[in-house]
Design a binder for these strands. Structure first.
Length: 452
DNA sequence: TCTGGGGTCCTAGGACCC
DNA sequence: TCTGGGGTCCTAGGACCC
């Protein structure tokens, strides 16, 4: 065996990565043992497969494929709606078990976590491998689900190791074996190397993680910046990413995105879809008792290019209506006649807790209170009768999509496009609700489902 | 991959201030 | 009024992740 070029022996640091095997489907099978051994998929409510059990994967079922296709090909498929409450419960239990083995545990996602084992051999009177296997067995025994485990010197290597054998796999990569392991690791398997980076690296003749790690550090830094330097170190067994044991702070943004069944150039329809996203995002915002001050609107075109604008509300709010005028303004700046759109998205940023507020001296208290009351009333009705039973007026246009031919406005397209693009690049003023003046009553009106 | 939905982080360059 | 330099903040967009 050639000696390691990285001059590391066993485990100067010991990082564990625990990865749930087909987590959602496994939890369903743990909760309903009758489903064990059967091809189970989740995601019924969305119409696409969110997670497939290993039995389903054996049939060729993958994440993301439409349910009707899968069902047509495999009538025996057990199709379940996602049950995030239960998945979260199992997730918490999994991390609780991990914390029995290490004080330094990072909850990376619902089904993945890291644990630092460095220095714990004496406490457990066991090798790192043994500790890792005990942890893995405890999860299987107590939760009746399997996880795959990777043990190595850094988070990136541990994550690669846990993927190496699945399901219920265990892979340890010691310092002196790193070079052998990453020689077998294609670039696209590395955590942080996406399609673009892999393409760039392949143009330099690189194929494996090893090829990358034996280049000079300065080269990696120059080509890929911070990430390049960090991954270069991680892949050689020098931690660049510490375990972050802090519990998740509240999220930084809430977004809602919806793709149309077919692309549309109809202004009213696209705007209606956008308003629907806005409502959904604000419903989630209020459910989490948050408010937002930063609004981003994105219109995705037929060719998958995006046009997006971000602007600030003049105060943090949880009221959909308060955000409508700004949404309208951003939409009007983004929308171009004659272009086909395939999706709209709304992102609410700069979230803060929605606690009792100090009223601003200059705010229109009555109007704000009215909007707050309206929002809670709408939430209550929708909770009782179904989401979007009551929604904002413009959403009416959702029910009569009109597909406009794209060559209907050929003469406007180029002219508008050039001018608008240039203007946007040069100058984007901050918009405030106060600048917009009175808005037509359209924005304040509600409609109810089926009222057409 | 012929593309669903919800997120995070990084960076270049402009705006703005002194 | 023009010029220069430097620092900080912000925005748009790219890239990636589950």
């Amino acid at each position: 065996m050639p000696p390691s070029p990285f001059m590391l022996t066993s485990f100067p640091t010991a990082i564990l990565h625990v990865d749930g095997d087909a987590f959602f489907a496994s939890v369903e099978q743990a909760v309903q043992p009758a489903l064990k051994g059967k091809p189970v998929v989740t995601g019924k409510e969305r119409g696409i497969i969110a997670c497939a059990s290993y039995e389903a994967k054996a049939l060729g079922i993958q994440r993301g494929i439409p349910l009707h296709e899968a069902r047509a090909a495999h009538p025996q498929l057990v199709i379940l709606p996602s049950d995030y409450e239960t998945y979260s419960l199992f997730s918490r239990r999994m991390f609780t078990i991990m914390r029995r083995y290490s004080p330094l545990v990072e909850e990376y996602s619902i089904d993945e976590g890291f644990a630092e084992l460095s220095g714990l051999r004496r406490l457990f009177r066991a090798s790192y491998e043994e500790i890792a296997r005990r942890l893995q067995n405890t999860i299987r025994e107590e939760l009746d689900i399997t996880v795959s485990v990777g043990l190595s010197l850094t988070k990136s290597l541990a994550k690669l190791a846990s993927k190496y054998r699945k399901p219920a796999g265990f892979t340890a990569v010691r310092g002196r074996h790193i070079h052998l392991f990453i020689q077998r690791t294609p670039l696209d398997k590395v955590w942080g190397f996406g399609p673009n980076t892999v393409h760039l690296l392949s143009k330099h003749g690189l194929k494996t993680a090893y090829d990358f790690a034996v280049r000079p550090e300065a080269w990696a830094q120059r080509l890929l910046g911070k990430i390049g330097r960090e991954l270069w170190n991680e892949l050689r067994g020098h931690p660049a990413y510490p375990i972050n044991p802090d519990p998740k702070t509240s999220q930084a943004s809430i977004s809602k995105c919806k793709t149309f069944t077919s692309p549309s150039a109809d202004r009213n329809f696209v705007y209606a879809a956008l308003i629907r996203n806005l409502e959904s995002a604000f419903i989630k915002l209020r459910r989490h008792r948050l408010k937002t001050v930063l609004l981003t609107v994105i219109l995705r075109r037929r060719d998958f290019s995006d046009g997006g604008l971000e602007a600030r509300l003049n105060r943090a709010t949880a009221s959909t209506q308060e955000a409508v005028p700004l949404t309208r303004t951003l939409f009007d700046r983004l929308f171009r006649e004659g272009l086909d759109y395939r999706a709209t998205a709304v992102i609410l940023g700069r979230l803060e807790e929605d606690r009792l507020e100090q009223p601003d001296l200059f705010e229109d208290r009555l109007r704000i209170d009215a909007m707050t009351r309206a929002a809670s009333t709408v939430d209550a009705i929708n909770a009782r009768f179904g989401k979007h039973t009551v929604s904002l007026g413009p959403a009416l246009f959702l029910h009569r999509p009109k597909i406009t031919g794209r060559d209907e406005h050929p003469w406007r397209k180029t002219a508008l496009f050039k001018g608008e693009t240039a203007r946007r690049r040069l100058y984007l003023p901050r918009l405030r609700m106060g600048d917009l003046g009175e808005r037509p009553a359209e924005h304040m009106a509600f409609c109810t489902r089926g009222s057409e």
